[in-house]
Design a protein around this nucleic acid. Structure first.
Lengths: 120, 120
DNA sequence: CCGGATCCAATATGATACTG
DNA sequence: CAGTATCATATTGGATCCGG
């Protein structure tokens, strides 16, 4: 099948690109952040409320890393009190189909996989 | 666009499934292992050679986790010396398109993203 | 050959207090 | 409001030694 041929044809390059992509999204909250930014721009406080259990420090750090990695744009409004809005860059947006695929795959296999697990 | 509608329509379920999927593939070597199993069954020693830098202990652990998670099948041949072959389960195989997408996304954006990084 | 068990180092995450 | 700084904790990866 042509999919397999395609996978096969550029195996080593793709392997590295896969690892690269994996590193970019490795953080505990990054994919969920991307998810919440997929529909609309969000302020820092909004994100914190949407992500129960994350602390300010770690949320800040993951957002900074995503910004440094070019996935997220950070817009600072010089007001008092401060207002900062986060959104996805073009690159970030182009990752969304993969996010959707991961969600679909997980939804499809979760039940079956957890059954296997419990039968051990 | 229908893609956005689809993303929007089942946001919370998908979010959880995304996190679930993320946990399954979170290990340092798991995606690369899947990659090397995508074309053919591999023996333990083969995998170790294909993954420079991984130690036996950690390779064993990641393979066990993937087996427990239903991604990888482990076939033990009762011979002396022992022979163990690893392959992808059906669920693992169905993840391959996502792996390919991640590779393609990384290959497409890597250069651009790293330029952004260096301009900081 | 294929691991299990153990211990240690590195990294990631979380809680808390403080600040422009 | 949106952070920074610091310390504590949890998770992960790696090295080493031992066993069927």
């Amino acid at each position: 099948m042509s999919l397999n041929k395609k996978i096969n044809s550029n195996l080593p390059e793709n392997k590295c690109s896969v690892s690269y992509t994996q590193r970019l999204i490795a953080g505990r909250w990054k994919l969920v952040i991307m998810w919440h930014l997929s529909q609309e721009t969000r302020r820092f406080n909004e994100l914190q409320k949407l992500l129960p259990g994350v602390s300010k420090g770690i949320l800040t750090r993951q957002l900074r890393e995503m910004e440094d990695d070019g996935l997220v744009h950070r817009e600072v409004y010089k007001e008092v009190p401060p207002k900062v809005e986060y959104s996805l860059t073009k690159e970030g947006q182009e990752f969304l189909p993969i996010l959707t695929s991961m969600g679909n795959w997980g939804a499809k296999h979760r039940e079956k996989l957890e059954q296997k697990k419990n039968n051990k």
